[in-house]
Simulated assay, not measured.
Amino acid sequence: MNNIPHLSILLGISRDVTGRKQAERQLQFQARVLSQVDDAVIAIDTGGRITYMNRAAERLYDTSWSEALGRLDSELFTYQWINPDDERNAWDALRSSGTWRGVVLHRKKGGEVIFVDETVSTLNDADGRSTRMLCSLRDVTAQRRAEKELRIKDMAIASSPSAFTIPGLNGRLTYVNQAFLSMWDYTSPSEVVGKPVKELWHDGKEAMTILQTLLETGRYTGERVGRRRDGSTFYTMFSGNVVTNDAGVPIGLAASLTDITDQKQAEAEVQAHNRALSVLNQIIGVSTSATDIDEVLESVLAGTLTLLDLAGGGIYLIEPGKQRARLVCTQGLPEGFPKQPCIPDITLAPYAASPLPGGGRWNTASVRQHPDYSAREDRRCPERGPA
């Protein structure tokens, strides 16, 4: 120092900047973290101007940090509140707690509207004054659309006139719609959910066999007989399939059911009607070709037994007085079956009081008289005899 001319004193000042350097490194680290997170992050000062934007925000709003820095956030997007009170509630929450979260609509500068799950926090200085807001933003448009589609599907299934159920792979019900409850005569899903499917069918063992077939083949369709809560049965058309996830792994079952009881009854009535017509045609054919009354009676009785699906029976003819009737023809009666050759009074019980099919009752006009038989003295009932 003695070599420096005119220098008598050297004054040096030093300052410890360790804390500042550490703070800078911390800020740099935080900036790197924010730049790599999937959610968009934007910092806005009290004037509404952008002071920071990470890469996810650049992608979301189709801009760059350099272009957005210092610009108003409204130049990137504008808010559209979903509910009328949302904006007021958001500001109230920020003033009271310093943070708010909700779903809002953002209209981007290109006109596209997106759903955004937004979390806003206020940043304060050392004196506790709010200096800026930090916004974390996530585009949930696809999620909201998927939720809407699911709600529509749920409403469609719930209000469908066809019964619908979702059993688990273990064969226990996890969901039923209102039509299912009505079909099985239940009032609440809680009465059904958790039940094994076999309890809802007339044949529980067969139901478990069908369940196994469904699990093995992935699909089953067929007519089944259901059993209501009160034990009554009904016919249903069952169509079920295995539900799989995106990887093709079974995660549950789904089934739709339609009550076909009326259809089955109508089919049975048509079959019975066709059968009756066939038998009547046979009777008419035999009657027109028969040579005597005995052959006619035999053919009529045979046709009637076939029509009623009976093993045996007989025909009584009413005598002219319309009070007595005589047995004139029998078929298929077992050996030893007690026959009553004569009914002395058909106006008495049980003949007069016995109901006829369709709601009518037997009377003296219920059996047609035949003059060939009523004219034969040897075929009439005796004048006196046991009742």
Rank of each mutant, 00 (worst) to 15 (best):
D38A: 15
L348E: 14
V103Q: 10
E335K: 12
P161D: 00
T18M: 03
R384H: 15
L105R: 13
Q143L: 11
G248Q: 09
I293G: 00
A146S: 12
F337D: 06
Y316D: 03
A365W: 01
T51W: 04
A126V: 03
D125V: 05
N177Q: 06
D309L: 09
I293S: 09
L94A: 09
L280F: 13
D292G: 08
R275K: 11
T165H: 10
L27P: 02
P341G: 07
V296A: 02
V33Q: 08
A207F: 06
S162M: 09
R49V: 03
D294T: 13
T18D: 06
A179M: 00
D372S: 13
G70F: 01
A268V: 03
A57P: 01
I82E: 09
E87T: 06
Q212F: 04
G98D: 07
I157K: 00
Y79H: 13
R129Q: 12
V192R: 01
L308E: 07
G171M: 01
G168S: 08
I9H: 15
P386C: 08
S74P: 03
F29I: 10
S299G: 13
A163I: 02
M53L: 15
N124C: 08
R151Q: 13
Q143K: 14
C342G: 08
L60D: 06
L317V: 12
D378W: 12
I260M: 01
G321S: 08
I283G: 03
N124R: 14
I114C: 02
S14Y: 11
N83A: 14
Q340M: 10
Q36D: 14
A254P: 01
L181T: 05
I315N: 02
V296Y: 01
I346Y: 02
S64N: 07
D73I: 14
S232D: 04
L7W: 04
R20L: 15
Q265I: 10
P196G: 05
G385T: 01
R172G: 04
E199L: 11
V249Q: 15
A254R: 03
R32L: 14
P5S: 12
L11D: 09
T304M: 11
